[in-house]
Nucleic acid binder design. Structure first.
Length: 423
RNA sequence: GUGGGCGUAGCUCAGCUGGUAGAGCACCCGGUUGUGGUCCGGGAUGUCGCGGGUUCGAGCCCCGUCGCUCACCCCA
């Protein structure tokens, strides 16, 4: 098999094959459960949207929109983009279908693939998976705290320990405007290369996030947005912290935190894992005041988060967390001879319908080979189904862990399995 | 878009200063009739990423190219 002209997966996509895929499933489940427990409901949306949704919602000045979108023209000449993040799409659906006309807040959760045309690296993929929630329509520091708590509960439920929560507040627009003037003045005096200066002119906050030492050193004395918060914004931020303390959720204030999406205002947060490489953010989110209106809806505030399933899987690996749900079947049926195959299928069907996990040995391998297959499948019990069993109606059920066999009639098989498995 | 590392069997890798390819795991068959795990014996599998060059001879050297990977920008 030559690899030269083999079709490969597109560059930079994350794929989960068994048995690794079990981890993915467990992680997604763990991240989703806390949201359900808090009364959030599923919203399932398309993975592609009108391009304008993102240019208007996420912001033209962001890297996500300016250089990382998968955009193409569909057959009707419309510009379509594979969703790079989840919030904009949720807002679109909420506005379009009037979900915000009922009781507030609207509480939604979702999970699925997202797409960004970036250069891939550890923990960064072109197709990646997120779990997200959005709570729309109520401005309340307690809600901010709940959203953060839901994310935290998800990570804890995976078993993650080596992560930290960083929070800050971007304040209201007046606070940000005041700070921006001072920050721009400060940056003008710095010694920066052309590319960095251009970046700063688009959004000066971005310089806080630069990883290069020469930039970090220069930015050490830069004016911080937190120091420019209005009394109202500050009170809100303190309330969020008060609630987090009540919830016993540890956090650190990171006044230099920058988020890549333009719509954030007020409370913003990020969960950072300590054992991952350069891409260490396992989740993040914040409040967005202007987004709904920006997209043509009411002036409603919202808050939400996106958690990276891929990165959580990597983090779980890094922490050595094992997902102990081994793939085990209750019963493995080995038919001997063509006549018995049909019978094996019907026996399996009946037991599967009764809630047991039952596998069949397919093909015409020797009994020994089938036994090995049964062994590998971790089946609890094995039964050989040949002519004599079918005519007598009685099978020898072998318990693999002990090697012991017991005679059971085919008609009582279900009851027998129930009694020994407790299912 | 920019930079570093790496591309040898399904997987993990070995291959000394160039002499036409190996191990472990996994897989399949067998160790006398229809009962697994251990053990023993046997077996299949590679255009050594691709193309070109140097050489009597290249997996090993040179050039190009593609891919993977890590990092920068940025982000889940």
């Amino acid at each position: 098999m030559s690899k030269a002209n083999q079709i490969q997966a597109p560059k930079g996509v994350s794929e989960y094959l068994p048995p690794q895929s079990r981890k993915f499933e467990s992680v997604r489940h763990a991240l989703l459960e806390p949201a359900k427990s808090a009364g959030y409901e599923l919203i399932e949306l398309p993975v592609f949207e009108d391009t304008e949704l993102f240019t208007r919602g996420v912001g033209e000045s962001t890297d996500v929109v300016s250089k990382e979108m998968y955009t193409f023209e569909d057959r009707g000449g419309r510009s379509i983009t594979l969703r790079p993040e989840g919030t904009a799409g949720v807002m679109r659906a909420v506005i379009e279908h009037g979900l915000d006309r009922g009781q507030l807040p609207v509480k939604l959760y979702y999970s699925g693939p997202f797409f960004r045309a970036e250069r891939p690296q550890a923990g960064r993929y072109r197709q990646f998976y997120q779990v997200g929630i959005e709570a729309i329509g109520i401005q309340d520091a307690a809600l901010d705290a709940e959203v953060i708590a839901i994310a935290d509960a998800g990570f804890k439920s995976i078993g993650l320990k080596k992560y930290r929560l960083e929070i800050t507040s971007l304040g209201d627009s007046a606070s940000r405007a005041k700070h921006r003037v001072e920050l721009v003045k400060f940056i003008e005096k710095l010694n920066l290369d052309e590319a960095t200066r251009t970046r700063a002119s688009i959004n000066p906050l971005r310089l806080f996030d630069d990883k290069r030492d020469e930039i970090k050193d220069q930015m050490a004395s830069a004016p911080l947005l937190l120091d420019f918060l209005s009394a109202e914004s500050l009170k809100d931020f303190e309330d969020v912290q008060k609630h987090l303390k009540a919830l016993k959720i540890d956090y650190i204030i990171n006044p230099r935190m920058v988020r890549g999406l333009d719509y954030y205002t007020g409370t913003t947060f990020e969960f950072v894992h300590e054992l991952l490489g350069a891409q260490s953010g396992i989740g993040g989110g914040g409040r967005y005041d202007g987004l709904m209106a920006q997209l043509g809806g009411q002036e409603l505030s919202g808050i939400g988060f996106g958690l990276g399933i891929d990165r959580c899987v990597l983090a779980a690996d890094a922490e050595g967390i094992s997902f102990d749900q081994e793939f085990t079947s209750d019963l493995f049926i080995i038919p001997l001879g063509d006549e018995s195959k049909s019978r094996a299928l019907t026996v399996a069907q009946e037991l599967q319908n009764a809630g047991f996990r039952v596998e069949i040995s397919f093909g015409d391998r020797a009994l020994k080979g089938s036994m090995k297959a049964a062994d590998k499948s971790n089946a609890e019990y094995v039964l050989v189904l040949g002519d004599s069993e079918i005519s007598s109606g009685t099978v020898e059920l072998k318990q693999m862990s002990t090697g012991k066999t017991s005679s059971v009639t085919l008609t009582s098989l279900k009851d027998y399995l129930r009694s020994v498995s407790g299912k």
